[in-house]
Amino acid sequence: MTLRLKKILLLMTPLAIALSFATAPVQAADTDLSLSDQGIQTSADGGLLEALMFYACAGVTLACGFAICLSKNIVRMAVYLFGTLAAVALMYFLLLANFIGVIQLIVYAGGTLILLIFGVMLTSKSPWAKFEVKRSELIAAGIVCALFAGMLLFVVVNAEWPLETDAVVVGSSMTQFGTGLLTDYLVPFEAISVLLLVVMIGAAYMARQE
């Protein structure tokens, strides 16, 4: 009959997530009202809020990623992957890439992840399928990855990136997307469409039972 504190805390999670999403980039003072009426964020200069938001997203991303590394249960891995994907989508919102964020949610979280879970359920003998990995192998992989990570981080932190921090958006990013896909990127766009068709047929053919 007790309603534990944990439950209350869990109940607060949607609120917290909602709040963090809602208070994403706070609009700057010189916001062009006509643009903001169209729902276009022109710049993210939110200071403290943006920072908090970023750390929350990064924390969830990395925590879920780490949990995937440690987890032995394949369905749990898929759920953690969902956490990673959702947090990365939030990060795209922070980066003013709304469309990519939404596509990430709809294609990755709504489509690919479900496909993975389907794959898990169709191929696992028991629901608790686990695969043992040798400890030595784990340690070796950890060392290699740590070295690799160290090297990459060294480069990332110390490199001089050419930056233009003043974000300038002309019109909606959606308009840019549409124009881009049908002009500059028409060839890759069509190539990818054909590829998708081929993949669809190929996947159906391969999964079919002879």
Binding site: L62, G65, F66, C69, C145, L152, L153
Partner: peptide
């Protein structure tokens, strides 16, 4: 970077 390396580890 960290996500990338974790992916490789996985």
């Amino acid at each position: 970077t960290l996500l990338f390396v974790m992916g490789i580890f996985v």
